[in-house]
Every structure is written in structure tokens, then in C-alpha cells.
Design a protein around this nucleic acid. Structure first.
Lengths: 343, 343
DNA sequence: TTGTAAGCGTTATCAA
DNA sequence: TTGATAACGCTTACAA
């Protein structure tokens, strides 16, 4: 491994001081324009590369943003990341990513790692079973800004970027009711997470406004995985036909799709017997048959908003700090799985 | 932002030298066991955290592995990542990830960034249209090890970890032939990538061994996206019924699923009229109806193999350097989309 | 407009 | 088993 070129090497070659080289490399306009160009050319020629470690050590800033997400395997999450990356790179920040795989313990250790890597700020969407945010205390203590997105935790310490889950769920359920459904089941997520309680409440509100009694037998709280969808279907199949729901509103697409398929395999007609609506606009929602009515979750926008929010705080923009909650719009996508009325 | 605790602070508190503290913190067994414990306790107590920058600056190693992938949005890729992450973290390496989004230019700039971040080694799966690996030259020049996985490039410089795409494709097509298919279309990927040429060749071999003439009218080279699947379906629909293929073998699942759906919408029966086989075992292959016969691509294992390969090289294990190519097994998953024979 | 010099926190080498 | 010291490469206050 040959030796790296440093500013000292450039200094020697150009008969300048290291300080001048350092200024030249960041195009300081206190320098002679000509000197700057000579420095840049020489750097190029000699294959100089900036040493972040030395510079971070000196600056006590890393220009790095940490991101912790439950999982990277959804279209939603990769869109969020794309949004974050765009903003971050435009502003000269690097990002490091880690997954909690929905486990609090792993999230905790990821937070610890991010802290030790001295990220300038943290973007986080909480794991399924995270009950408190004690593990973020080191960040709060050191006043390193933390921005929550999607799966947030109510706190005074941080900004969060979310969508109006209540309203989105309300719209989906209202739509099902408009299609003539009266007995609507809800596959709900972990009630520790605001995103899922809000969806449940939106569901309740839609029922109430349409004078449909809420029946907690029809709410299944689960992990919203493939298996959970299948189990919900089996539960429906084991009911007396007259007790069965005539629609299912699922808090995500995966569980909806698997539930739907299982029912279809057992002779239930979608949407005639049971209509379906999901949440997220995942790829699977467009592949399943009939195509799944769902909520378009604006991942890219959420990522953008979260990243700009964080960077504004880092830059000392106080107005942003006061915006503790940023709510983005999500829209209903009506597809065949819920279309019962031919007009 | 309060000041960080350094080894000097610990040294002062414990009446030891910074050197001793440094040793203690990494549990050097040259030290008195008791001293080590006192140091660790004090560090904990004072909230010391290790400064990677100082340490990297000193060591000229970053303990970081760079990963560049085309996209993070497939089950395959996230499995690969999981495999890499497991091995890397076990060995004390951190990872940084970036996406080329299938674009050579972006890949180039990602490589550049990784180089500047001084990763100890690079794991890369090439973008769709990368024609050469000149952009990796800085790594080769500096002898920083590069390991290709999945989408590799034939070169003497590097190890690569792949599956036997030829054999996997051969098995899939042979299976279709065994189901009685005689006119098999192939949706192929960019022939710049070995993975796709190998699949095409496997397809050819299966035809040949079964005395089916190769017909290049039946090979559609495309980007294997949703739209490409749909277009292939339209092409089939525009053929005279007797000219139509009786099976389609697609180089990935996405294109297969969209092609299949379009044909179904137009009254073609799967698998009776046209049987289907895909590649990758993506989530969609299990959601579509009928479920798609496909090749199980062992992402996790590929990730593990690539990461261990790289780390072995970093540790100076010469035997690994000689293993320029590591080939993993992939197996055929037969599902309803290709089952024509009832036994 | 450029130079001098100190310091960021850690670790390897040598000495004790 | 522990300590002293120099070095890693960059930045910046201050001086020229």
C-alpha cells in the first residue's frame, strides 16, 4: 500500500505552506485565484485525496447523518432512503444506515454504534416493539438532534415527520362503507406505535360517522406479516357465513394480500363477498388479483422532509426546532379489490 | 455541546499514562488485570467514548467495508446485505452502502466516494449498463481489495461470488420441456452482464439437448422491468395463435409476473396455454396467481461468502486471493405456473 | 494574500 | 507491567 499524498506533499511541490494548501483545496476566496487553481491542479495531478479522519478530528464534526430503520425491504423504506439521500448529498452530508429488524435490542445497539460514530444527527423510525426511548438519552444529553419519521415517539426533544394516519385510514374505511360494506374487519398493528393506533382510530371514526357499531371482535391486532394475514383469513373462514365480515381493512399491504389469497383459495369472491383495502402501496398490491385498494404512502417526501428538517437544525435554524411535528399527505388509491358498485 | 471525555481525562483521574489507558480500553493482556478493570469502570463512569477518527488517523485503517449495489429494493438484495452485515459485524467491520440505481455514472461517483472514505475493501454488484471497470482503477492501483458478487466482471484483479446461472437456467428450461413445452420464449437481461448471458446459454443448452431448434425470434432482450414484461405479453398476443410460445422463461420474477398477468387478462390460461418460469424467488413470485416457478437465489449465502472472502483478503489470507471465483448453488422451485402434468 | 505553529485523540515504539 | 514521546493529516488563530 503506497503512501497517501498529503497537503504537505502538495505544499512542498508548490513551495507553499500547508495552510495555504488547505485553504486552496476548499477554494477559499481569501486566496489568490491563481494560487487556488495551481493547488487544485496539482492535487489532481498527484492523486491527492482528502483525509476525513484528520479533518473530522480537528473539526469535531463528521458531516454524517445516521439512519436507523426497522427494515430495508419495503418499497416504502427504499423511497424514504432515496429522499434522504438526495437532500443529504446535496447538502454535503454522508449517511450511514442500519436496520433494527423490528427488534428493540438491535435498535438499541445500533443507536449506540451511531453515537460512537459521532453522527451529527440521527433519523430514526422505531422498531415494532420499542416501548420507550431511553436508549436515545445519550443523544439528548449531548444535544445531538434526533428526527423521527413514520414510526415516531411523542417527545418534546425531537421533531417528527409523519403522515396523517388517522385521516388516511378514515378515508379507506369510508370508501369501503360507500361501497356498501357494513361489517368491516380491521387487521391492526402493534398499538405501541402511533401509526397503528391512529389507523385504528380512523377506522373507528369512519364507523361511528356512519352509524356502524364498533365491534372489537372484528379488530385483530397482529404483526401484519404474511402469516398473520393467513391466520386472519382462517379466522374468517371458521365463522358462520352470516357472521363473516363483508370487508377487511388492513394496516399494511402484505397482510392484506396474504389474507385475500387465502380466502380466494377457499372460494370467497373478492370484492363481491369481501372487499379489501390495504395500506402502503407496496409492489405486491399491484400484482395480486384483484389489485389491492390501498393508501399511497409518500416515502420519498417523508425522506426529504426528515432530512431537510434535520439539516436545518444542524445549521442552527431555530424555526425548524419549534416545528415539532410535520404532517404529510397520503392519498387513497382505489383499485378492484374494493370496487363493488358498477356505475 | 460539552467536551468529550478522552483517554487523557481517564489518565488524570486514575494516575496512569494515556498509553496505559489506551491499552486498558482494548483489554490488552499485557496489562495487570486489575488495572484493566479499573480503566474500564472509570471509562464507563465518565461516559468515555472511543474516537474513531483519531484512531483511524493513527492506524490508517477504517474497519469499514463499502458496498455498492444496483438497488436495495429486492428481497434478494436485502438478503445479501443481511449476510454481509452478519459476517462483517462479527469481524468488527462497519459497512456503508450506496445504490447505483442501475446507472453507470452514479456507480462511478459512488466508487469515488467510497475511495475517499477510505474503505478497507469494496463489495460491488455492477449496474445494468456498466461496460468496463475503469472506475475501479483507483482501488486496484492502491491494492484495496474489491470483491464482486452476483453481477461480476471478469478480471484478474478480484475475487467474485456468483451462482451457476447457466446451470440454474438450464434446470428451469429443462423442467419446462419435461412439462411438454416445445416452443419456449426467453425474456433475457442485458447481455453485458454475465448473469444474463449465462442464463441465455443455459436456456440454449436445454433446448439443444432436447432437440429443439433455437429460434432467436423467441429471445427478447430487455431491462426486465414491469413494463418489459407487459410488452413481451403484448408481443405474444399479437402473434398468430399457432406461432405463440407454449412457455416463457424469464430472467427475473418481476418481468415474469407482469407478463403473466397481462396474458391472463387477455384470456390466456397459465400454465395450460403458456407455462411460466422466473428467476430469483422474489416475494411477488409467491403472491401472483398461479404461483410462479422460479430459481431460489441464495442471497444470504452470497452475502456471507462475499464478506468472508473480502475479510480474509484483508487479513492477508493468501489462499482466498487465489480463489478468484466462488460458485454457490441455486435450486429450482417448481410451483403452479409450470405444472402441466397431473400425476 | 500567505505563513507559523499548536492542537484534535489515539497508538506504536522504545525505554524503564 | 507501565510511561514518554512522536506521529497520523488537517484546520485555524494569529502573525507577517
Amino acid at each position: 500500500m503506497q503512501k497517501d499524498v498529503t497537503i504537505y506533499d502538495l505544499a512542498r511541490e508548490l513551495n507553499l505552506s500547508p495552510a495555504t494548501i488547505s485553504r486552496g483545496l476548499k477554494k477559499s476566496n481569501v486566496l489568490n485565484k491563481d494560487t487556488v487553481n495551481r493547488i487544485l491542479d496539482k492535487a489532481e495531478e498527484m492523486g491527492y485525496r482528502h483525509n476525513n479522519f484528520a479533518s473530522n478530528l480537528r473539526n469535531k464534526r463528521t458531516q454524517t447523518i445516521g439512519i436507523i430503520v426497522p427494515r430495508l425491504n419495503s418499497y416504502f423504506m427504499t423511497s424514504v432512503l432515496a429522499g434522504i439521500e438526495d437532500i443529504a448529498s446535496k447538502e454535503g452530508y454522508n449517511i450511514i444506515i442500519s436496520q433494527s429488524l423490528e427488534k428493540k435490542e438491535l435498535e438499541k445497539s445500533n443507536v449506540h454504534t451511531m453515537f460512537n460514530k459521532r453522527v451529527d444527527g440521527l433519523l430514526i423510525s422505531l422498531a415494532y416493539d420499542t416501548k420507550d426511548i431511553d436508549h436515545l438519552q445519550p443523544f439528548f444529553d449531548k444535544q445531538i438532534p434526533v428526527v423521527f419519521f413514520d414510526r415516531a415517539f411523542p417527545t418534546e426533544h425531537s421533531t417528527c415527520v409523519v403522515i396523517n394516519n388517522h385521516e388516511a385510514a378514515y378515508k379507506a374505511v369510508k370508501h369501503l362503507i360507500e361501497q356498501g360494506c357494513k361489517r368491516i374487519m380491521h387487521l391492526a398493528g402493534n398499538q405501541l406505535r402511533d401509526v397503528y393506533t391512529d389507523r385504528l382510530n380512523g377506522y373507528k371514526q369512519a364507523l361511528e360517522e356512519n352509524n356502524i357499531a364498533f365491534d372489537d371482535q372484528l379488530v385483530h391486532i397482529c404483526k401484519l406479516g404474511e402469516q398473520d394475514g393467513i391466520e386472519a383469513a382462517d379466522a374468517i373462514l371458521s365463522m358462520q357465513p352470516e357472521e363473516r365480515p363483508d370487508a377487511v381493512f388492513c394496516a399494511n399491504d402484505i397482510s392484506a394480500v396474504y389474507c385475500m389469497s387465502r380466502l380466494k383459495e377457499n372460494g370467497i369472491k373478492i370484492p363481491e363477498d369481501i372487499a379489501f383495502a390495504g395500506f402502503n402501496n407496496d409492489a405486491v398490491s399491484r400484482v395480486v388479483e384483484p389489485k389491492l385498494t390501498t393508501i399511497d404512502y409518500p416515502g420519498y417526501n417523508i425522506g426529504e422532509a426528515a432530512a431537510s428538517g434535520l439539516i436545518n437544525i444542524l445549521k442552527g435554524d431555530i424555526t425548524m426546532i419549534k416545528t415539532t411535528k410535520l404532517v404529510l399527505q397520503a392519498s387513497l388509491l382505489v383499485r378492484d379489490s374494493s370496487k363493488r358498485q358498477k356505475k
